[in-house]
C-alpha cells in the first residue's frame, strides 16, 4: 500500500502505480486483495478495500493498515482526477469555450460561500430576511460565475451545465427568479466588483476551484491527499498564464484590497471579499 501511495504522490497514474515484482508470497494476503499483471502484483484498490481488510484479521497493526487503506483509496481517486484535470487543460488550446467553462465551474464552486460573508445589515437593506438570504444567495453562484467568464468569452449557461454533467461534478443549477439574482448582485456590489476581476487571476482561481471540485466530486476526502494536487494544479496554471503562484496570489491580494475598500461603509466592511475570492487551499 505504501508503494502505491508513493507512486501516486510522484505523479504516476493509478493504473500504473504500486506494482512490485511478484514475490512467492505477498504478506500472506488473501487472493481477493491482490491484483496481478505480467509477473507483477499490487494491492487491489477497490471501494470496499477497508471492509475487505477488516475481515482479514492477520495484521499486527490494524489501525495503521486501515489508515493506509483509506489513504490508498483516496490516492487512487485523486490520481484519476488529476489525470482528468491534465487531460481537460490540454484541450484548452483548441477550445477557449472549454477553458472558460472550466473557469466558470470553478468560480461557481468558489462563490457558493457568499452567504456567510456579507454583513447582515446589507442583507436586510436589500429586502432579504436572514433565512431567505442563506437559502437564495448560494443558488445565484452559477449566474455570478457566468458573468465573470463572459468578460473574456462568449458563453451560455448551457455550455457550463453540459460540461458539469459530462464530468459528473454534481453541481446543481436550480432556477432562480431574476429579481432575486438582481438583489443578490446589489447586496454584493457585483457590477462594481466585476470590473476589478482581472483575466489571469480569474483564470487561476477558477482552475484551482475546479481542481478542488473535481477531486471532491470523486470522493477524495483526506486533506493531505487533496492538497497533494496543489502543485500539479499550479504547474498547469503557470503553463497557461505564464505566472507563478506567488505572483498570482500577490495580484489576488491586491484585487481583494480594492474590492474590500469599495465595500467599506463607515469603517465596517460590508462584504468580506477575502473569504469569497480566495484559493481553496
Amino acid at each position: 500500500m505504501r508503494h502505491f501511495i508513493d507512486d501516486i504522490r510522484k505523479g504516476v497514474s493509478p493504473s500504473e502505480a504500486g506494482w512490485i515484482r511478484k514475490p512467492l508470497e505477498v504478506s500472506g494476503l488473501p487472493p481477493e486483495l491482490i491484483e496481478e499483471r505480467n509477473e507483477n502484483v499490487r494491492i487491489l484498490i477497490k471501494e470496499d478495500i477497508s471492509s475487505s481488510l477488516r475481515r482479514f484479521m492477520g495484521f499486527p497493526d490494524r489501525e495503521e493498515v486501515m489508515m493506509l487503506a483509506d489513504l490508498c483509496l483516496d490516492m487512487s481517486r485523486m490520481g484519476e482526477a488529476r489525470d482528468l484535470l491534465v487531460n481537460v487543460v490540454q484541450r484548452f488550446e483548441d477550445s477557449p469555450q472549454l477553458e472558460w467553462s472550466v473557469v466558470a465551474l470553478g468560480w461557481q464552486e468558489m462563490l457558493t460561500n457568499i452567504s456567510g460573508c456579507v454583513a447582515l445589515d446589507q442583507v436586510l437593506e436589500a429586502g432579504f430576511n436572514a433565512v431567505q438570504w442563506h437559502k437564495e444567495a448560494p443558488k445565484v453562484s452559477a449566474e455570478l460565475a457566468l458573468s465573470v467568464a463572459r468578460k473574456w468569452c462568449n458563453l451560455e449557461q448551457t455550455n457550463i451545465e453540459d460540461l458539469s454533467k459530462t464530468l459528473s461534478l454534481g453541481l446543481e443549477y436550480p432556477s432562480v427568479n431574476p429579481e432575486i439574482v438582481e438583489r443578490v448582485m446589489h447586496v454584493l456590489g457585483w457590477k462594481q466588483a466585476l470590473k476589478e476581476f482581472t483575466k489571469e487571476e480569474s483564470e487561476a482561481l477558477g482552475l484551482l476551484w475546479f481542481s478542488d471540485k473535481l477531486l471532491r466530486s470523486r470522493g477524495v476526502f483526506l486533506p493531505e491527499v487533496l492538497f497533494s494536487v496543489k502543485e500539479k494544479t499550479w504547474e498547469l496554471i503557470s503553463g497557461r498564464i505564464g505566472e507563478e503562484e506567488t505572483e498570482v496570489m500577490e495580484k489576488v491580494d491586491k484585487m481583494i484590497d480594492k474590492l474590500s475598500n469599495s465595500s467599506r461603509r463607515s469603517h465596517v466592511v460590508t462584504v468580506n471579499w477575502a473569504e469569497i475570492v480566495r484559493p481553496p487551499w
Binding site: S50, G219, F221
Partner: peptide, 24 residues
C-alpha cells in the same frame, strides 16, 4: 487519521457545507 467509513454517502456534500464555517 480517523477511520473513514463508507456511509453516510452524503459526507462530501456535508463537508462542502461545513468547511466554510471552521475559520469564521
Amino acid at each position: 487519521r480517523r477511520r473513514r467509513f463508507q456511509y453516510p454517502r452524503a459526507r462530501p456534500a456535508m463537508h462542502q457545507e461545513f468547511r466554510h464555517w471552521y475559520r469564521p
